[in-house]
Amino acid sequence: MSERTPMIEMCNVSKHFGSVIALSDISMKVCSGEVMCLLGDNGAGKSTLIKTLSGVHSPSHGEMYLDGKPVNFKSPAYALDAGIATVFQDLAMIPLMSITRNFFMGREPTVGWGPLKRIDWKYADRIAKQEMAKIGIDVRDPSQPVGTLSGGERQCVAIARAVYFGAKVLILDEPTSALGVKQASVVLRYIAKARADGLAVIFITHNVHHAFPVADAFTLLSRGGSLGTFRKAEITREEVLNMMAGGAELESLDAELSEFQRSDQQQKQATGDGGQPLSRASNA
């Protein structure tokens, strides 16, 4: 594993926004055919890391290498050209534009030449419908505005788009947050398929049931810094869960919850019936 050239590598990357240090000294590498899961609290720097990888931000310090070659993306267009496709948390969708227009935004297939070069709408509509069908969403009409879709369907458009255009690296920022069970499993299967196809996959999720089955390695971020990368063999599901949520907090939450339950029961016994649910909650 270690002698292979990583598909994407970050060396001591930092990102500052004015006086705020959003990322400090992050090093990470993902080989082709590998899935890296980023873990960490809100504000740990996961999204900033992903935005740096996909060209939205350029790093303040440090280098990035794609397939062994140093890269410096001036905008997401360069990252896309280099084969890095990203599903952003806000999905980068435009509600008033059609599904097809969104799907091919910035990457429009054309026919003809010179001043007559035009978007190949027939082809674009067909591909959009077909790629959406693959993810399990049967698009009624690819020319309908994205704004008419549900949140989950929109997320599927964004994922289908990234999978379609991601040639080397696929980055997903909480891709399963708005999805139903069926679509979430389709997305996980997509990730597995992308890995089998030799892509490097980086993704963020807060769901351990989504993270553990597909990830090969976990990188834990905290307050802008990296707490290390763990191979799957070195770690258990419970440890991942602990790292995701901060285990100590979960334990104290458990204790608090059982405390609520106990006081509820005591109250029930004292009054004979449960009373109003709302007032119970406020009493507790």
């Binding site: 980068a92 435009i94 008033l96 534009m97 935004m105």
Partner: peptide
């Protein structure tokens, strides 16, 4: 259309 609809989304899509 994309630039007017959402500048950031458009830029992030290349």
């Amino acid at each position: 259309f994309a630039s007017g609809g959402d500048k950031n989304a458009a830029r992030n899509s290349g």
